[in-house]
Design a protein around this nucleic acid. Sequence first.
DNA 1: AAAAGATCCCCTGTTTTCAGGGGTGTAAAA
DNA 2: TTTTACACCCCTGAAAACAGGGGATCTTTT
Lengths: 213, 213
Amino acid sequence: MKYNLIIADDHKMFLEGMLSMLEDQEQYHIMFTAKSGENIIKYLQINSSNDIDLIITDITMPDVDGIALNSFVKENHPDLKILVVSMHHDPGMINTLIKKDVDGYIPKNAEKRELLLAIQTILSGKKYFSSDIKEVYMNSIFHKKKDVLISLTKRERDVLKLIAQEHTTQEIADTLFLSKHTVESYRKNLISKLNVRNLAGLTKYAIKLGLID
Amino acid sequence: MKYNLIIADDHKMFLEGMLSMLEDQEQYHIMFTAKSGENIIKYLQINSSNDIDLIITDITMPDVDGIALNSFVKENHPDLKILVVSMHHDPGMINTLIKKDVDGYIPKNAEKRELLLAIQTILSGKKYFSSDIKEVYMNSIFHKKKDVLISLTKRERDVLKLIAQEHTTQEIADTLFLSKHTVESYRKNLISKLNVRNLAGLTKYAIKLGLID
DNA sequence: AAAAGATCCCCTGTTTTCAGGGGTGTAAAA
DNA sequence: TTTTACACCCCTGAAAACAGGGGATCTTTT
């Protein structure tokens, strides 16, 4: 029982390196390699009864990049795993990939040992993110706050919190012993102050500020 | 120029250990120790012009625990740093503390080296979380998803996503080439299906599902 | 072939949000 | 002392959300 892998990268050098790292691994069968995500998507569309277990992919590629590839796969073949291998350690990028539910992420300078560990972990159904990546991601979480919180007054935060907790204006008025008009004023000010359009925007802000869980 | 520290823990043993770890550190002055958060809060309320730089605290304590203490401090003395030292590695707990903007978190079995590093890092204005803690937190992020996503259809997810992106019903109808009645139906179904009350609830769900950033 | 699920559309109402304007008193900062 | 920030309150009118019902068509599963 072998696992079937595909590798996608537009750099020949990388493909070679990856192949050499995996060639002595009996349990993995490299079905084919691709220079962009496009060929993989085509393959998946034709062979609907796909027998692929894992795609190892770079992020930056011509035509269809790693992110688009991941989106397509997660949408149409939810059981197919994706391991991203990249040299970008941009927090935004990492955040995007985590949100998009990629199964693993290791840097391009990873050791063979880590590559194999990542593949193995992912195939067993778990996620694998190298500690470098975790480091970057955690830092981005810690530094994301603060900068925005300061502009709101205590009362505004109170109201915002209750709004995000799905309370209606009247309920908020009752709990804070205010007139509903007052609460409406606060909501109005919050919307203009935070430059959002409606409750959804306010809720997102409340979450970003850590006002609610 | 010394830094003033306070230590809070209801276990004498822990206090002793902490003191011994810090006694040879010239730059830190332990102002006093407390057996619960209550005494610290009292102190802060009386000495409003506080000269404290950092509080090192346990989580589980009688009367006022570490979380309540942190909330009080962040509310009333935003510049005062908090380092949590605990043996709990519960993801929920860690998550709460990160949300509540605690400045650092190390396990109780941490080495002296790590303790000093944590203190130093925090006093320099940065956050410090030990790698154990990061590990636990990251895993909780990865495993939080999936379980809820499956119950929604593709179309429902589309609509939910657009709702959470602050679009109005009419706008959603236009982008998806639907009647606004249809979109209203989807919204209605989502609200009952996800068991929430309004837009705020839907938005929170969308974020939890990773549909939006 | 029947059942179930998904997508799509419509109706009648009520409640709430949202946009825009107005205002007061008080406490702190310039 | 004047200005600024904050907390508080009110009004109108339009737009959107929300509650609860209905039904049509298509595909997939049983």
